[in-house]
Design a protein around this nucleic acid. Structure first.
Lengths: 182, 182
DNA sequence: CACGATACGGAGCACATGTTCCGTTTGTCA
DNA sequence: TGACAAACGGAACATGTGCTCCGTATCGTG
């Protein structure tokens, strides 16, 4: 038997409320806050998701899908460095705007990650491999290093300062290998 | 009237327990855990410190004094870049070993900081000014940027990876301005 | 040694937050 | 439209943690 119409609607509302609450407050956002933003009761959330962890994973899956668009764009770039650096800047922007992504990488360490997140990591690895082949990216770097290096765009108080784009450029400078012209 | 002998001893024990607990578990370490490590009751902690915030500030003050030694060493260096980069590496090491320092920068934003911490920031600024004068440090960087850039040494799960020293070198590469020989 | 002041310990309270449970409401279908 | 299953809301419970309070233990002095 299919879900009732109101159940379908409410499930979507819960996901939207969760995305909004987690983006603003991080994974620590109370379930009650998610319920408030979704306009539903707490009980409704727990009917659709077994626990808060499942809700976090569902949101992670969704946000990862959005980030995957940046991977596509990076692979479409002709220049491997432009691809990698563009992806890095775009992910930094996403991290700065969505506090939840901050906590997501930690979450991934504890649980079987959302499927889209794994695809995001793999796609990032592809972009990195291409840069390595072109010899423009510091050796030894892989996709697992990206979240750590994005940490500079994390801390809310510094995001307010709007200085994180500078930090991103510093790191990109440090990651780039200059190819001598010949 | 002076403190009683046991009170003096216990105050020191509390500070040691707090340093240990906060270093391992971060500022979130429960007060009860501090009491356990100190070998005292919870009540004793609250006799010596009005609240947990005061305890955090006392520990911050102490750890800042240790870090100040690195500032002295940096200023004693002849080469401004060696001084700055040495300080940066040393602070990264401290951050990696003491989870509490991670939270300290946030704490500073909320409260009047410990006096030693202000001196640490000022000393770091001196080291940075010297590097700017020599033209070897990327313009626009100041002492407030250092904790943000050290964020790569923060996250516990990445500290375990032992990859943070690589990240520190990447950032230093990005911060350095190469002075052409003439 | 005795006694008063000082300090100690930890039970218990206040509050925040994840989760459950059940009386009430709503959607669906005959 | 009526009736039943499905879904809802939020009070209540469980747990973790900061902090208070007071009966008990200890220190230091005469």
């Amino acid at each position: 038997m299919a879900l009732r119409a109101d159940a379908v609607r409410n499930r979507e509302r819960v996901l939207e409320g969760a995305r909004s609450a987690f983006a603003d407050l991080g994974a620590d956002a109370p379930v009650e806050e998610v319920a408030r933003r979704a306009g539903v009761g707490i009980g409704t959330i727990y009917r659709h998701f077994p626990d808060k962890e499942a809700l976090l994973l569902a949101v992670l899956d969704h946000q990862s899908q959005l980030c995957l668009a940046w991977v596509e764009a990076a692979l479409a770039e002709d220049d491997p460095w432009a691809g990698f650096s563009g992806l890095f800047r775009a992910l930094a922007q996403e991290f700065a705007e969505d506090r939840f992504l901050i906590d997501a990488a930690r979450l991934r360490r504890r649980t079987d990650a959302a499927e889209s997140y794994l695809r995001l990591v793999q796609g990032t690895q592809d972009v990195i491999d291409r840069a390595h082949l072109a010899g423009v990216l510091r050796p030894g770097i892989d996709a697992d290093d990206v979240p750590a290096l994005l940490a500079v765009a994390w801390e809310p108080s510094w995001v307010e300062d709007e200085r994180w784009p500078t930090y991103v450029e510093i790191i990109l400078d440090g990651l780039r290998v200059d190819v001598p012209l010949r």
